[in-house]
Design a protein around this nucleic acid. Sequence first.
DNA 1: CAGTGGTCTAGACCACAAC
DNA 2: TTGTGGTCTAGACCACTGA
Lengths: 251, 251
Amino acid sequence: MARWHTVAASLREAIANGTYGPGDTIPKEEELESLHGVSRSTVRRAVAQLTAEGLLTPVRRGGTKVRERRERSRITRARTVYRDERGYYFDPSARPWVAVRPPVVRWGPAPHDIAHVLGVEPGSEVLIRDRVMGDPQTRDPIQLSTSYLPADLAKGTVLAEADTGSGGIYDRLEEAGHGPLRWSEVVVASAPSDADTDALRLTPGVPLLRLIRTTRSADGRVLEVNDCRMSGERWEIGYEILRDGSAEFGL
Amino acid sequence: MARWHTVAASLREAIANGTYGPGDTIPKEEELESLHGVSRSTVRRAVAQLTAEGLLTPVRRGGTKVRERRERSRITRARTVYRDERGYYFDPSARPWVAVRPPVVRWGPAPHDIAHVLGVEPGSEVLIRDRVMGDPQTRDPIQLSTSYLPADLAKGTVLAEADTGSGGIYDRLEEAGHGPLRWSEVVVASAPSDADTDALRLTPGVPLLRLIRTTRSADGRVLEVNDCRMSGERWEIGYEILRDGSAEFGL
DNA sequence: CAGTGGTCTAGACCACAAC
DNA sequence: TTGTGGTCTAGACCACTGA
């Protein structure tokens, strides 16, 4: 076993058994050097590893601290989509999030994994609608929501405008004769891109939790793919499980 | 911007635009040194970063390669649990996975996040049932499934045996008068532990996708928490979305 | 068996933030 | 102001594995 592995394992153990609790400062690099009889680079390799794993956060001048793990908040997904006069809702907990910056609408290449679902060639031009949802008070970003629409569907329509009006793109799609719309969604865990790490202010080592929702027309054509990304450390997604013939019960 | 950031960004860009495609070998460390005019350590810092992000895999003697991204396979969760003569099922796709090693049953401390759901003190002793499910042919591990049960419920019962008999712990719990059981589940993304990285043979930088299912008795007591972990790179979880009053439709 | 990545050292200077 | 982590260099030897 490499020496830095030994140092990392020793730190991991000390964190696991509570020797260093959340918020505590671990010994400074110089002390870890003499403690394990290794050079500073070796200590730094070990600390870098635990940092990437989300266990530590180095603070300049303040030492290296054991990260505080927040409790995850839950987003609950209902079995049925519902709507009111303002549009469709997928989340019955109805979080009061707001757009923390104006939506960005642009044309660009379809990412590989999205293109596959959207049924277009990877890299071909599609309409990309970016929103950042966050806390109404603090304006902290919470979710990055990106919609992708096929070019031939969106070109020259209100779908490509920043403001799509009441009910949003789904009402526009139904008005254009594609309805009644149908949706499905998958949950994915992935490493964040640099841009997402930045936008969500993620600590290194924290994965993304992604909800990828596909909108289809009544005849089965894929009209939109929405990729909603949030911190895997701060959020979890709850689903109901029903028993045959039983009534709904709470989570 | 630090120099290693520059090198990392340059490599990321080259991978994104296809200069280095999946499976390609990037220039060896020595070449990257002279290419960017930095020392070997700096090159290595950049490569370490992209490796942690899951973009590269260094191969001794074979150079450093751009990782092939596999397509994700889907696990579909139905809104209703169903059962046959063998027990309850939560996954209608009914994957033919098998236990790739005998289940391990032991008493141990409840992990912090599980204890919270189970309603016991973190670190207090609970029954832990570990299973590894995998491919019937290759016997590759696919899912790590760990069940936690409160000590007072499981002590001295068949629940603490390796073989719980036909229908497993759920049938035993219902026979003990706790039924009809109720379930709920949440999806979580998290960084894997060392043991999980090892058991699932995860590449560094790949997050875990976790299904945490809670079993409750008819009167609401939490009887079991199951933590099912799989590679976030290889799996996604699909959920049905129904429209009010509409018939089911496929994903 | 040789070339690649893996590890480690000793030393230097920088930059930020808490004091 | 100063102590902490952040970056970088030059050089050495090791260990695995694919040519």
